[in-house]
């Protein structure tokens, strides 16, 4: 975790287009972003594509003098979440496809029963998150998958901490309801 002071200096150096600073940002945030994208997407290739495109957009934004002014981490995670949202909006994935992808990824007999249950639960939660309202899904993902604090989530979502807590509450209720549905 990078402190806010260090992140601010790093961002200034990145705006000055210091190659070292830009690579440092990549090395610092790329693993977390990749994991986050993977957990939302369920595919390494798509997660890599997502992260690569997020960093490309980040460079273009810096070159135009735009991009994040302070919260670099929140900015990058927001871009990942938006990319995933857009990805599923443009190419909706049916539950059957998800099962197929899960089976292809984990052939029968290669894993234990406990591992299979875990994967099944993970896939059900991934699908349930896709069906949640975007802001609720974003709050729950950042909170329980990436371990963001309410303040960090508020910076990423662009709202207050109280609103984040409210979104979390409503999102968890909706999530419980979705997970109980048979046809999820």
């Amino acid at each position: 975790m990078v402190s806010k002071v260090d992140e601010s200096r790093l961002l200034k150096r990145a705006r000055a287009w210091e190659e070292e600073a830009l690579l440092q940002i990549y090395d610092l945030y790329r693993p977390g972003l990749f994991r986050y994208a993977y957990r939302l997407l369920g595919q390494e290739e798509e997660a890599e594509e997502c992260v690569a495109e997020v960093f490309a957009r980040f460079l273009f934004a810096l070159r135009r003098g735009q991009g994040p002014q302070r919260h670099l981490r929140a900015y990058l995670y927001r871009m990942v979440h938006n990319w995933v949202r857009d990805r599923f909006r443009e190419h909706p994935v049916s539950p059957l496809e998800d099962v197929e992808r899960t089976l292809l990824k984990d052939p029968v007999g290669s894993t234990t029963e406990e591992e299979a249950v875990r994967r099944w639960q993970a896939e059900r939660l991934r699908q349930a998150l896709r069906r949640l309202p975007p802001r609720q899904a974003k709050v729950l993902s950042l909170r329980f998958l990436q371990g963001f604090t309410f303040e960090e989530i508020a910076e990423t979502v662009g709202t207050s901490v109280g609103a984040v807590k409210a979104l979390q509450h409503r999102g968890l209720e909706n999530l419980r309801r979705l997970l109980k549905e048979e046809d999820l």
């Binding site: 990749f34 994991r35 993977y38 957990r39 390494e44 997660a47 249950v117 875990r118 994967r119 639960q121 993970a122 059900r124 939660l125 991934r126 349930a128 329980f144 998958l145 968890l172 999530l175 419980r176 997970l179």
Partner: peptide, 18 residues
């Protein structure tokens, strides 16, 4: 979270890409 939701999130949060 409650136990049921915790299991779901634990399953997804511990999923590490290769």
């Amino acid at each position: 979270l409650d136990e049921e939701l915790a299991r779901y999130f634990q399953a997804l949060a511990t999923e590490e890409p290769e």
